[in-house]
């Protein structure tokens, strides 16, 4: 039997449901924990970030307007696809972070479980974060949580897959669209996750994945007027402060990195709630008209 040819994988960005190379044409070497070459990943530029925001904005209307039930179904579908690719993700996580095969498999399993957990929240978050408010007047007063818009997410540098899922799923389950900057040192699970998203009913543009330097991509995203929130989980203290200042310019919601966050612990609903806005509606009730009629 003849020896097989090496088929190397070309990792690409994921923008608007397609897989382009970086506009800049740049790549960088991704290495395993011991410094051995794993793959070339695209080194995304400022303009790729710009294109990703445009794609995310375009997708926002459809995704936030979809019923919570449908979003839950779509996210569950993603979990189904992840389940089928466990082997691939385990290998990528093991190679990228130097974990043993068993530990990597455990991280992938935890990530899939977490994805399913968040998928279940889609039609429940409104009951937890919203509801009827008692007011001193003849009104129904109802608060409902609404997605905030386009969210830029700097994925955690460590915990390349569980951390990634833990920041991505809570952002999109409520109807936000996301521009995700993958961990610089271990971007491969994020780029492969994009392939899963592309084949599991998630509309193009809802999640856009960039790989590259957090500082280079974070700066234009934090200052971008059309980004409504930024999650700084993957920024170190100095970069986070810088990006927070830039984000203040158009009053973005900012999720600060919390040092010592354990991605394996039960996340609770905080990450979802941080990316929601509350809309409150006052509706008259009872007999208000001069004639005594209801309206």
């Amino acid at each position: 039997m003849s020896e097989r040819l090496a088929v190397l994988k070309t990792y690409k960005l994921f923008i608007g449901g397609t897989f382009p190379r970086s506009e800049s044409g740049r790549v960088y070497q991704v290495t395993d924990a011991k410094g051995g070459w794993l793959a070339n990943a695209p080194l995304a530029s400022r303009k790729d970030a710009r294109d990703a925001v445009v794609a995310a904005r375009k997708a926002f209307g459809g995704w936030s307007g979809a019923t919570a039930y449908l979003r839950g179904q779509v996210l569950y579908r993603v979990a189904e696809m992840l389940e089928g690719r466990r082997g691939q993700f385990t290998a990528e996580v093991a190679a990228g972070s130097g974990l043993s095969k068993a530990k990597a498999a455990a991280e992938v399993d935890a990530a899939i479980d977490r994805w399913v957990w968040y998928a279940g929240w889609s039609d429940k978050v409104a009951q937890v974060a919203g509801g009827a408010n008692p007011v001193a007047g003849p009104y129904f007063n109802l608060s409902t949580p609404e997605p905030t818009g386009v969210v830029a997410v700097l994925a955690p540098r460590e915990s390349a897959f569980l951390g990634l899922v833990s920041v991505l799923a809570p952002a999109i389950v409520t109807g936000n669209t996301v521009v995700l900057v993958a961990s610089e040192s271990a971007p491969l699970p994020a780029l492969s996750l994009a392939e899963v998203l592309a084949t599991s009913d998630v509309p193009g543009g809802v999640v856009n994945v960039l790989s590259g330097r957090a500082a280079e991509l974070g700066a234009p995203l934090a200052a971008h007027r059309d980004v409504n929130a930024i999650d700084l989980s993957g920024a170190d203290a100095e970069l986070a402060r810088e990006l927070e200042v830039a984000a203040a310019d158009n009053l973005k919601r900012v999720l600060r990195p919390r040092p010592g966050t354990s991605w394996t612990a039960d996340p609770g609903p905080e990450r979802m709630l941080a990316l929601l806005e509350t809309k409150t509606v006052w509706h008259p009730t009872g007999s208000l008209g001069a004639s005594g009629s209801a309206y």
Binding site: R50, V53, R57, P220, A223, H224, R225, D226, A246
Partner: peptide
């Protein structure tokens, strides 16, 4: 034009 003036990408909200 806003992008050139401020250095930051603008958006349809503006």
């Amino acid at each position: 034009r806003q992008k050139l003036r401020t250095g930051n990408y603008s958006g349809p909200d503006y």
